[in-house]
Design a protein around this nucleic acid. Sequence first.
DNA 1: CTGTTAGCGCTTTCAG
DNA 2: CTGAAAGCGCTAACAG
Lengths: 337, 337
Amino acid sequence: MHKSTITIRDVAKAAGVSVSTVSRVLNDRDGVSPTTYQRVRQVIEELNYASNLAARSMRLQQTGVIGVVAPDLRSAFTLQVIRSVSAAVEERGYELLVFTSSRVDGEEDQALREQRHVHLLNSGLTDGTIVLTPHATTFPSERPVVVIDPNRHGVEVPAVLSTNYAGARAAMAYLFELGHRRIGFVGGRPDLQSAVRRWEGYRDSLMEQGISLDPTLVCRGDFTREGGYACGQRLLSLAQPPTAIFAANDESAIGVLKAARDLGVPVPQALSVVGFDNITESAWTTPPLTTVDQALEGMGQAAVDLLFESMAGKPVAAVHKVATELVIRESCGPPAR
Amino acid sequence: MHKSTITIRDVAKAAGVSVSTVSRVLNDRDGVSPTTYQRVRQVIEELNYASNLAARSMRLQQTGVIGVVAPDLRSAFTLQVIRSVSAAVEERGYELLVFTSSRVDGEEDQALREQRHVHLLNSGLTDGTIVLTPHATTFPSERPVVVIDPNRHGVEVPAVLSTNYAGARAAMAYLFELGHRRIGFVGGRPDLQSAVRRWEGYRDSLMEQGISLDPTLVCRGDFTREGGYACGQRLLSLAQPPTAIFAANDESAIGVLKAARDLGVPVPQALSVVGFDNITESAWTTPPLTTVDQALEGMGQAAVDLLFESMAGKPVAAVHKVATELVIRESCGPPAR
DNA sequence: CTGTTAGCGCTTTCAG
DNA sequence: CTGAAAGCGCTAACAG
C-alpha cells in the first residue's frame, strides 16, 4: 500500500537526465531547455513525485515554512492567535507547522519542552518560529524566534504584548462611569505576566478612586471557564455581593455569566460583567459580553511582521505593544439602585 | 544572536572523540565506556547541543512524531478532534506536528494541498499522519495515513467516521417523542458526507412518521454560526414557524439560538433546538444545548489506534465507526400548546 | 544547456 | 570499545 519512496533519482532515471537537471526543473532554475523541462515535468507528474522536506531543508537555508510552538490547544486565546498567525503567514506565501506541547508536567519542564521544540523546528524545518505564551525566556536557536505574550519577564527575543495594564484601566473606568463602586475581580494564574498586569490595573484603578481594596471581592481564577464559574459563585454568594465583576479574561467572564444565570442573578440588571481578550465567543454569549479587545488578530500579525523582519536580518524592537480597546456590548449597566 | 548551528561534529571535537561515538551516546547504544559516555554527555550539556530533526529523520525510519493535517483551525470540531488526537499521541510517548492548510481556494486545490502536506510530513518527518475531514480520497505516501470524517466516499485509507445517520435519527426521535411535528432543519454543506448523512436521517425520520417534507422548513447552512443564525432568522420569520429545529451541527445550532434570542423567541418554551457534535461550547450556551454527542474524543483516540496498528504493520479495518449518543440538556421541551 | 561531484548532519556497518 | 567511511535525498558549484 505504501509506495516505496520515489526520489529525485528515480525521476532522473525515468526522464533520462541527471539529478541536477531534475533539481533545476523542480526549483525553476534557468538553464534548462524547454524540451527537457517538459519531459521532466511530465515524468514528475506521472510518478507523482514530491520532494522530501527533510532532505531539502538540510541543504537549503530557506524552507518556506514558519513554525509555531503552542502550549496547548485548549484555550480560545491560543487558538485565535494561531489562526491570526496562520493568516499572516499564508499571506506571505509561507506554510505553517504547529508543534504542541500540551503535556504540562511542571513549569520547568514546560520551558525545556518549548526550547526543544523550537530547536526541532528551527534547526532546519522552519525559517523562523513563533512561540505562544512561553515560560522559557531564552531560546538557543539558529533561526529567528519571536514570542507572543510571554509569561515571564526578561525574555531575550522580540516579544509581542498587549497593553494589559491600560486595558484593565479602561475596563474599570467604564464601570466607574456607570456608577459602580463595589467591583469584584476574577484573576488569572499569578505566574502569568498578563494576569498580573491586569490585576495591577484593577488595584490601581480602585486606589485612584479612593476605594480601598476589599480582599473578599477578589477571587483567584485560572483563566478557564470552570475557574470563572467557581469565582462567580463565590462572589455572588457574598452577603454583600459586588454590583460588577471584572474578569481577567473572557473565558473566566463566561464562567461568571453562567454562575450568575444559575443563581438567578440577571445580567446586566443586577450584575455587570466585563471580560478581557475579546475572543469570538464573547460576541455570542447571553448577553453579549463587554470586554477589552486584545486585538488577537493584531498580535499574530505583529509577531509575523517581527519575525520576517528578523529573518531579513533587520534589527527589530525588543517589545512590540499592541493596543487594547474596550468593546461595549450588553453585559454592563448601571448598578441596581 | 542566533548561534551558528552546533553539530554533532562540534561535540565530537570538544569531547575528543569521533562523531560515531557521540551518535552512540545520543541514542544510548551499547558499546561506549562509562568514562567516555560521561564526558560526551557533559559536553552535550555544555554546548547545549540538540540533534537536527531533518538530518536525523533522513537517516532513520522512526522519528517519534505523528502528523496531523487539518483544513483549518476555525471550527470547534477540528480543534476538539486535534486535541483528542494530541492526547492519544502523547499517551504513547510521541510528539505531534500539525500542518494547516487554511487557504481554501477550491475543492480541487484543497485535495492537492492535503496530499502535498501528507507527503511533506510522511516522507521523513513523521511516522504516520492523520488527516481531518479530507477532500482527497487517496494519499500517495510512504507511511501510514488514517483519515477522520472524510468528506467524500471511496477513501482508500482507513477512516474513522461517526454514525451520522443513526445520530440524526435519534435526535428526531427525541423531538417526536416530545410531541413535535413541525420540525425545521438547518443543513451543512452538501459536499460533505457527514452533512448529507444527517440530512438523510432527518428526511427519513419525517417520512417514517408520515410527515411530508416541507421545503420551506429546510435551510441550507454551512456548519458555521453565522450560517445557523441566518437560517434561524429565516425559519423563525415564517408565517408558520417550526416548533423545533434540528441543526446539523452545534455551531449552526448556536447560531439558531442567537437568532431566537434576537427575535424574542424563548427557548425551549416556544422553540426546541437540537444540535450535533457536542462540542464543549454546547454545554455553555443559554440554555445549554441538547445535542448528539459525536464522541470527538473517541474519534481522535480511534484514529490514533488505527494509525499505530497500521504503523506496526498490522492490517486494519477500512472503516471504524464511532457511536453517537443523544445528550439531553435544556434546549428542548414540548411544543407550545 | 547538462552532468559530475561535494557535501548538509546524522546513523550505521565494518574494521581496527 | 572506538573510528573511518558510506549514504539518506537534495542542491550548488564546477566542468564540460
